[in-house]
Amino acid sequence: MRIDGPAVYGYGDANADFHVFGDSPARHGGTATGVPFTDSEAGRRLQALVHELGFATDAYADEPDLSNLYLSYIHPGDGEPTPASYADQERFLDAELRAINAHILLPVGDRAFAYALEHHTSVRGKTDPRTSEMHATPVRGRGFLVIPVKEPTEWTETDRERLLATLRELLDGDYRQIKGVATTVG
């Protein structure tokens, strides 16, 4: 399946321990800049938070200087995605998640969190897939720690502070997950 219009591909530190991924540029911005989570209210709120945590040098920029953080989307195409185009693009996100090899996944919004639950944890049927219910609550995954993020445009001050506290606690501790490396012997 082809992406029509400008695509918004992943952006940031390719050696990051933290990987934020959202739905699409249609929902979270970036169509005008080519950078995820920009030119939108969701991007301004998210970038202000990652700046406060020390991941970004500025509180908001169209091309943020990021350290230890990578940003991407399930569907990088312009316009409103369809169920078929989401299904087609998920394989590229999966490859990107594994290539960046972050320890902490931060799916933004319900679609991204449902994707993370299904593909990167074994608790899909046991965990509420709504970020409004699970916001900033760590979920152990298969090689990843998943921290669901409620839509930034819906954050209350309590939501923002809860996410900030969760991420600060992780940064102050040993957040790295044990990852297996597949090898063949013989």
Rank of each mutant, 00 (worst) to 15 (best):
residue 22 G to K: 04
residue 95 A to E: 13
residue 119 H to L: 07
residue 35 V to L: 00
residue 103 H to Q: 00
residue 106 L to V: 13
residue 82 T to H: 03
residue 109 G to S: 12
residue 79 G to L: 00
residue 81 P to M: 01
residue 87 A to L: 12
residue 107 P to F: 02
residue 107 P to W: 05
residue 102 A to E: 00
residue 46 L to T: 11
residue 41 E to R: 13
residue 43 G to N: 03
residue 86 Y to S: 03
residue 63 E to A: 15
residue 97 L to C: 09
residue 29 G to V: 03
residue 44 R to V: 10
residue 26 A to T: 14
residue 36 P to C: 11
residue 69 L to M: 08
residue 118 E to P: 00
residue 31 T to S: 13
residue 22 G to P: 04
residue 100 I to Y: 04
residue 73 Y to C: 10
residue 104 I to Y: 10
residue 58 D to T: 11
residue 40 S to I: 03
residue 49 L to Y: 02
residue 44 R to Y: 02
residue 64 P to W: 05
residue 110 D to Y: 03
residue 57 T to G: 07
residue 37 F to G: 03
residue 42 A to C: 02
residue 23 D to N: 15
residue 31 T to N: 10
residue 106 L to S: 09
residue 92 F to V: 13
residue 21 F to G: 01
residue 51 H to E: 08
residue 23 D to E: 15
residue 78 D to W: 11
residue 41 E to Q: 12
residue 44 R to F: 04
residue 74 I to F: 01
residue 67 S to H: 15
residue 92 F to H: 14
residue 70 Y to G: 04
residue 55 F to Y: 04
residue 117 L to A: 05
residue 35 V to C: 00
residue 44 R to Q: 12
residue 24 S to D: 08
residue 64 P to G: 07
residue 90 E to L: 10
residue 66 L to H: 02
residue 120 H to L: 05
residue 120 H to V: 08
residue 50 V to R: 04
residue 60 Y to G: 02
residue 59 A to L: 12
residue 69 L to A: 10
residue 86 Y to T: 11
residue 21 F to S: 08
residue 50 V to T: 10
residue 105 L to W: 09
residue 113 F to W: 09
residue 63 E to C: 10
residue 96 E to L: 13
residue 70 Y to R: 04
residue 34 G to L: 08
residue 47 Q to K: 02
residue 25 P to K: 11
residue 35 V to P: 03
residue 50 V to C: 01
residue 47 Q to I: 02
residue 87 A to P: 02
residue 51 H to V: 05
residue 21 F to D: 02
residue 33 T to G: 09
residue 80 E to I: 15
residue 106 L to E: 09
residue 94 D to G: 14
residue 93 L to N: 08
residue 106 L to W: 11
residue 70 Y to A: 07
residue 112 A to S: 12
residue 79 G to P: 01
